[in-house]
């Protein structure tokens, strides 16, 4: 069985919000109707988004790290929002595992949003129905699009390739390999919701330099000893210092 999902690499996300704006653009102009905005140009704008980027600072100054944290529906394999829906408007597609809302059946009771520990669902204030990330179901299932464009808008927009998209049940897919080999993890695993979306952790980038790597063994100046070396700094003083 297929389970489509996003894998978000926190190590390379720069928090540019390109995924947020491309998501909003694609989904507000699509078949599902607008993602309503209220006071978009006023002091307190509100609106429906499927995807938001939050920012956290970890550690104590000066040893801090900034984490940009894109947050959208995780398309859980055990979605707690689906069984609580009284109308069946909330459902999980059996063919690809995407959790969706049928806007024509939703009565706007908000019960599914209570039953989601991640706060992934938002009630559209104008249409009065519950909305959430669809993984751009209208793109990824549209066979008239060329294969490389059959991906969610956020994935196509990400400038740092922090968002990977694929089938996490296929062990050889790009996302499965990323989860397996780069420490992919799930959010709030303690609830047993089995989120399909995974996050790749931040990694420390460290450069290990051995002392002998600092010395240029075949330094022609040293070999011929033509340097007018008088103790001042030179461009090659690393090599000289190691002697």
């Amino acid at each position: 069985m297929t389970q489509l999902a996003l894998v978000i690499d926190l190590n390379v996300c720069v928090g540019c919000h390109a995924c947020v704006t491309s998501c909003k653009e694609w989904n507000t102009s699509g078949w599902a109707g607008p993602l309503t905005d209220y006071n978009p140009y006023e002091g307190s704008p509100r609106g429906t988004f499927f995807n938001r980027v939050q920012t956290f600072e970890v550690g104590t100054f000066p040893n801090t790290e900034t984490i940009h944290f894109p947050k959208s529906c995780l398309h859980c394999e055990e979605p707690p929002c689906v069984p609580v829906c009284p109308t069946g408007a909330s459902y999980k597609r059996p063919d690809n595992g995407v959790v969706l809302v049928d806007y024509d059946k939703c009565i706007g009771c908000k019960y599914c949003s209570w039953a989601c520990p991640y706060g992934a669902r938002e009630l559209d204030e104008q249409q009065k129905v519950m909305k959430k990330c669809t993984l751009c179901i209208d793109r990824i299932t549209d066979e008239s699009l060329p294969e490389r464009e059959r991906k969610p808008a956020c994935v196509l927009a990400c400038p740092t390739n922090a968002r990977l998209f694929g089938d996490i049940h296929d062990p050889d897919s790009e996302v499965s390999v990323a989860i397996r080999e780069r420490g992919g993890y799930q959010l709030m695993p303690e609830w047993g919701t089995k989120p399909a979306n995974h996050y790749l952790p931040r990694r420390k980038t460290q450069l290990h330099i051995r002392p002998d790597e600092l010395t240029r063994v075949d330094n022609p100046w040293r070999k011929e000893d033509i340097t007018p070396y008088t103790g001042e700094e030179s461009i090659d003083d690393v090599a000289w210092a190691a002697i």
């Binding site: 307190s44 609106g47 988004f49 938001r52 939050q54 956290f56 970890v58 204030e125």
Partner: peptide
């Protein structure tokens, strides 16, 4: 990590 501070919530004027 024990020290995590949120700097941005992803919305200017609040949300659902």
């Amino acid at each position: 990590h024990t020290q995590i501070v949120q700097k941005a919530q992803g919305a200017t004027g609040g949300s659902f």
